[in-house]
Structure formats: structure tokens, C-alpha cells
Nucleic acid binder design. Structure first.
Lengths: 181, 181
DNA sequence: GTCTATAGTTCGATAGAC
DNA sequence: GTCTATCGAACTATAGAC
């Protein structure tokens, strides 16, 4: 049985938005690849922006869940390590990683998307949960960078002979070191 | 005496491309802000893409110079530290940093710009110069991330109460730690 | 060097038939 | 749910006058 059209639109849009950029991808292209006309897309999504919103939703829920968890925990070194582990686990899910990459690459174009603005706030709050009030500038940068290191490994994969697993493991290792005093 | 028009076009384009994105910025907007018509822009630059090329040139020269220097040096820990210092110094120049930010935010839209493709190769070669042949995955990621850490501090500045100097100093500190075994 | 004017194209979005 | 047909608006780029 075939996937429903709505999901297929999301898949194609996600790929094209990531490869070419949001603005550079027209609804005509998406429709053509799906084998329908633009008008059909408008049956499933109110606007082009609505497609993006539906993609953000795929990721936002998990990040917010992670923030809720972090806030329920004491700010200990072990909590920070566990936070990185959980974040790395999320990044392992294929669909999630694809959305993350799409969002990374289209920050400017989507800077006014309300759902994305909210998610950015959530991410910022997440880094805040990794720092005590008295943390130094180097500590703040270092710990924020730790979260980022988990993403960074992924784009190195493209040009490298290393396996996906090696990259994931090594990224987590580097991230963990950034937490150490 | 007024700045020449060509330079003013570059300045306005750089700002708008960074704020709104390359695709989202039309030549009409640039022309309006400059107080001329689109046609005037076409006198100074052959295409919209040509404006980008001229902006990339502002940065590419320094990165290539840095690569040449790195290749002339033995791959020692001290050479890597010195490389970070030089890279951080480059980032301090205002115009250079602005171009870096513009390029970061428009990677997808500009992925086929030949000058940018070349500069990406140069950056990749630069990270390669930071690793011995036998380096582990974690070392490779860590050292590549060190270069990136210098950029990362900059976007944290926006939301922080920290001064620019503190950020720069702290970023270099974090980057240096990423070089350590 | 800068202008007006416009060609040529594409876009997001809608109306209405089936 | 998908189609045809079309709209108004925006875009890049060019031609030619001044």
C-alpha cells in the first residue's frame, strides 16, 4: 500500500529544501517530482510555509521534551553528560537528523518562521541549562559547543572514509571532553 | 569625498544578504537603498552572482595565504596553536568577519558559486593540515571543531552580556583546548 | 555612469471543473 | 483529490537614451 500523499510531499520537500535551499525550491519542482500539479499541494498544505511548519514539528517536540527533562534535573556534571547522550540518541534517528540538517542550512530564509523561532529559543534554553549562574565565558562557549559538536561530526562524514558509527562515537567523545573543567 | 559606488554596493549587498539571505534580497532592494536604479548596479557588476564573487574575494585571499603558511610548516602542536591564533586574528578584522558570517548563512544558496567551492576546499585543506596521517576520528573532529570554535563564539555574542573581547579570548581558549591530546 | 522602459521568466496562490 | 487555467506580483537581465 502506498504512502499517503501528505507524507510524500514532506519527504520530497525536505530533500529539495535541504539540497537547494528553501527559497530556491519552488512548489512546481515539488509537484513535478511527486507527479502532480501545484494545485494538488494546496489541497494538503495551506501555504509553502505550512510545509515547513509541519517539518519543524517533527523535531521540535523532541527538543522540548529534552528541555523539560533537563529542567527537572539538578545541574550536575552527570546530568550534562546524560543530556549529551540523549541529544546524540535523538540525532541518530534518520528523519530527525534530516530535519536538523534542513534547519541548519536554512536559518536565514526561515528566520521569521514562528515555530522555528520558538525552537531556537528552546535550544538556547537547553544550553542555558548546561551552565550554572557563575559560569565563565569559556565554560559557556565550551558547553554550548558540546551540543554543537554532535552535529559537527555529521557534516564531516561526507568527505571522510570513516563509518557513521565511528563518527557518532567520536563526536560524543569530543563533546564529553568539552564538558570537562 | 564620497566612497566609490562599487564599494557601497558591496557594503549594502553584504548587509542585506546577511540579514535576509541571498535569494531573498533583490537587486531592486540594493539599488533602492543606494538611491539608484537596478540598471546602475549592472554597470558595476555583470550579474547578481558577480557581487557575491567580489565579496568572496575579500576573504579567500587571506584563507589561502594561511593555507600556504600552514603547508610550509612542520605539523607540530605549536604550529597548530599558531594557526588558530592567526585565524582568530583574521576574524577580528570587521569586514572579514562580516563576510564570514554572510558565507556561513548562505552556504546552500551559494553552493555552486565557483569561488566559494574553491574556498571550501581551501578550508578543508586547512583542517587537513592540522592532522597527522594516523590521527583518530576523535582527533580529526576535535581539531576541525577548534577552527570552528573561533566562529562559534561570535554568534553567542548576540544574546550574551559578555563583551566582544571576552568572547574572542574565551573562544581562543576553548579552541586551544580542543587541540590538546 | 545612470536613467527609463521593458522583455522574458517564474513564483505563490486561487477558482472551478471533474 | 487532482486537474486545467489563470492571476498578480516579483524577479533577473537587457536595450537604448541621456
Amino acid at each position: 500500500m502506498r504512502e499517503d500523499t501528505r507524507t510524500r510531499i514532506q519527504e520530497i520537500a525536505l530533500r529539495l529544501f535541504t539540497e537547494q535551499g528553501y527559497e530556491a525550491t519552488s512548489l512546481r519542482e515539488i509537484a513535478e517530482e511527486l507527479g502532480v500539479t501545484k494545485a494538488a499541494l494546496y489541497y494538503h498544505f495551506k501555504t509553502k510555509d505550512d510545509i515547513v511548519a509541519s517539518l519543524v514539528d517533527l523535531r521540535a517536540a523532541e527538543v522540548e521534551e529534552l528541555l523539560d527533562w533537563a529542567r527537572s534535573q539538578p545541574k550536575t556534571p552527570e546530568m550534562r553528560r546524560e543530556l549529551l547522550r540523549r541529544y546524540a540518541d535523538n540525532l541518530m534517528r534518520p528523519r530527525y537528523l534530516e530535519v536538523a540538517r534542513f534547519l541548519e542550512r536554512n536559518q536565514t530564509a526561515l528566520r521569521e518562521q514562528p515555530k522555528l523561532v520558538k525552537m531556537r529559543d528552546t535550544m538556547l534554553a537547553l544550553t542555558a541549562e548546561m551552565n550554572e549562574p557563575g559560569a565563565t565565558a569559556a565554560e559557556r562557549i565550551s558547553r554550548s559547543l558540546a551540543l554543537f559538536a554532535l552535529h559537527a561530526g555529521k557534516w564531516l562524514t561526507q568527505e571522510s572514509e570513516l563509518s557513521d558509527e565511528e563518527i557518532t562515537k567520536a563526536s560524543l567523545e569530543v563533546a564529553m571532553r568539552l564538558l570537562e573543567p
